[in-house]
Nucleic acid binder design. Structure first.
Length: 110
DNA sequence: CCCCTGACGGGCG
DNA sequence: TCGCCCGCCAGGG
């Protein structure tokens, strides 16, 4: 513990936890919000380690196309059902009206 | 030590 | 508008 890397991961989880219900965001937005030190891939990588963080709504994080790129990691269509349960319509593994449901930490959070 | 992959994104042709 | 390539960081073989 006390490693700067964990701090970075925790920072990513922090932002993801701030995502309101019924809203979705993309990896690049989180990375950009944290700074250039983080890249979209790193966010995804952190999400891969979020298995120890049940409070991290990783299902609300999709790619810039609004596609549930990480749904495969949730197992079956858990990610999709999770989003629909929160009021987010998902069709063809893609978030409907992703443009409207998009939550930008750089704009809405800051 | 070297190579490849990965829950991505943006730029160029 | 669609398709392809490069870049970024980290972990595994």
């Amino acid at each position: 513990m006390a490693t700067s890397q964990e701090n970075l991961f925790d920072d990513i989880y922090q932002v993801v936890r701030l995502i309101p219900v019924g809203r979705v965001t993309n990896y690049g937005a989180i990375a950009q919000y944290l700074g250039s030190r983080t890249e979209a891939r790193m966010v995804g990588w952190a999400m891969n380690a979020c298995h120890n963080m049940p409070d991290v709504p990783a299902h609300r994080v999709v790619n810039r196309n609004g596609v549930l790129s990480g749904k495969h990691h949730f197992g079956g269509n858990v990610m999709q059902e999770r989003l629909e349960e929160e009021g987010v319509k998902v069709e063809n593994d893609k978030v409907v009206d992703f443009n409207k449901l998009f939550w930008n930490p750089l704009t809405e959070l800051l």
